[in-house]
Nucleic acid binder design. Structure first.
Lengths: 348, 348
DNA sequence: ACGCTCTGAGAAAACGCTTTCTCATGATTC
DNA sequence: GAATCATGAGAAAGCGTTTTCTCAGAGCGT
């Protein structure tokens, strides 16, 4: 009577290194050597092995390989929401850049549940050689504690006090100031900022940027309005925006701006004749709204690929705890048709 | 002099099952048992093990686990282009649904390089417990040959002759017919289809749908125009569309429609007064174009989560080669503001 | 009090690979 | 021609788990 494990062994077993070794009449070790080209092996034997491997269509099992090598050739990315074009773009840039170096990416979508982020990141890290973390709402303290445990780590739009984890960030403060400046230079005197999620790090940056703007332009009225980060929240803010009496709106991002544009259009308010609207991010769709959206362009594809570069650097350095680059991208104001000089009347 | 491997062993070794075993004064096996709750273990010992594990912050290594278990709790998805909202949405739906069952997703972006798709899918399959394949342009023969080797496989918008791989598809043929019908019922008599990538399976489906439409409406003029699948191709087709003299345009998808909308707007052509435009897919942005886009809505989020359900079924069935569900989604025409009755003049 | 079953824990094999260690063979040198 | 060396292949030890196998000891019936 056949033993259980024997049965298992023979039944539809995937072809492994042992099969190739047997067919070629050599040892496992030799097969491994020719597959990886690590050690010198007699050309004749190598050819025999390769022939056997080809005939059996042998493909090394990556899991076994990972275990032996201690690396998975995979990196993880945790994002708060895969529906957000910004994270989609980062993911895409990262994935393409990593693929070029033979790495894959594993995704973890925290669905905006901040409390899950640390766990997801930890799990991802254990399966991968490194993690790219996008956690705009995670508390600073938690981030600070988490970062060292994730080590080959790249932070997006966050920084830690310890400078040994690279971070890529966008200077939202400067971007929003430039947009405000743009509106002012068109003649606007009453502005409103339609803010994003309250605990979002990038929203805080915009707020400090606007504080500075206020200090430099005491004559300009700048209201604040709470909002969210997506279409619907922009759309829902339509009435409040109209009620604000402002002639220029700084929306949290392009999504919000688009929602607002649509709301204004429904209400018969013309953009930019009656009111000017700016976005932020310059997502691909921003060019195609009606009117095309004035926004602050962040080079998001670059961000993804640079994230990979920083990750690769750390993976290669392995042990050394050098201080890592802190990259900051400056958004560039992209003037389109959603902003114009205000109508004459309300010039106080 | 310390041996190489000893040095390696002591240096910043991650805490493993052995450490926990030692600390708790039991064997590896016992630790594994309590971690997985597989076998009965004395409550006292179990508690001791759990305490040790907690103190050492032990987290089982997933790679070792995968090797022993023969599964990775990960599925792969190969997409032709992560910049396309349709695939983004599928990815998202899949990822969220899979996460609910404790699975992760590994992405492989073929960057529209058809010849890479088979290789990518194979690699993904070896690292994962199954693969979701979106390969709209892969040759039928290649797909037929590839499918069996990928086995726990779910096909998106493709089918194989063998009915043992589940597939989810959208009835593009019906959708485009309904859109055409909608235009006709508004009074349009001269239509033009702005087609997508020539070898795309879903484009072929639209074409057969339109053939059928033609057969049923011999009185309606329906031109064909070659295009692509993104913004820019829609934008570039603006002149050709105008030259066609058609009053109703069926764009390949929403992206193309948006590009076209923008082009028409630049040329001063009013939509829908001068020309009606339809899209396809109902991507989130379609509601927010100006005017909001009439399109055929495909329930894309459902598609992603159903893809996971079909995958899970296969993973659970393991050996059995039952015939698998072939799901087909019917798009629903979503009438917005980009379509209207044509101007009276050209009514022949 | 003896033998029986049953519970539960350790030893060891297995998963599929890489890499070190070891040793045979043939080439090189004086 | 003997001692030395380089070459290259096999044996075996890891990588970190799970799981089977094995067996000690406890509990039970007669």
């Amino acid at each position: 009577m056949g033993r259980g494990h024997m049965a298992r062994r023979n039944t539809n077993r995937r072809v492994g290194i042992a099969d190739v070794a047997e067919k070629a009449g050599v040892s496992h070790a030799t097969v491994s050597r020719v597959m990886n080209g690590n050690a010198a092996v007699d050309p004749g034997i190598a050819a025999r092995v390769r022939a056997a491997a080809a005939e059996l269509k042998y493909q090394p099992n990556p899991v076994g390989r990972s275990l032996a090598l201690g690396k998975t050739d995979t990196i993880g990315i945790v994002v708060p929401d895969l529906a957000n074009p910004t994270f989609q773009a980062i993911l895409r840039g990262l994935s393409i850049a990593a693929a070029q170096d033979g790495y894959r990416v594993l995704i973890a979508d925290s669905s905006e549940v901040t409390s899950e982020e640390a766990i997801l990141a930890g799990e991802a890290r254990r399966r991968c050689d490194g993690v790219v973390l996008c956690a705009p709402r995670m508390a600073d303290a938690e981030l600070e504690e988490l970062a060292p445990t994730l080590h080959p780590l790249v932070l997006i739009n966050r920084t830690t006090i310890a400078t040994n984890t690279p971070s890529l960030s966008v200077d939202y403060g400067q971007g929003i100031q430039e947009l405000a400046q743009h509106l002012v230079s068109l003649g606007h005197r009453r502005l409103v900022f339609l803010s994003g999620p309250e605990h979002s790090a990038s929203n805080r940056q915009r707020l400090v940027g606007l504080d500075q703007f206020r200090a430099e332009h005491p004559d300009i009225e700048l209201q604040m309005l709470h909002g969210g980060s997506n279409f619907d929240s922009g759309h829902e803010s339509t009435e409040a925006i109209i009620a604000s009496g402002a002639t220029g709106v700084l929306a949290f991002n392009d999504l919000v701006a688009m929602g607002l544009l649509s709301g204004l259009h429904e209400r018969g308010i013309r953009v930019p004749e009656d009111i000017s609207v700016t976005g932020f991010d310059d997502i691909p769709f921003a060019k195609y709204t009606t009117p095309p959206l004035t926004t602050a362009a962040v080079p998001i594809n670059e961000l993804g690929s640079l994230a990979w570069r920083r990750m690769r650097e750390q993976i290669q350095q392995a042990g050394e705890t050098a201080t890592q680059a802190q990259d900051e991208f400056s958004p560039r104001v992209e003037i389109r048709k959603s902003t114009a000089a205000p109508a004459l009347k309300p010039a106080s």
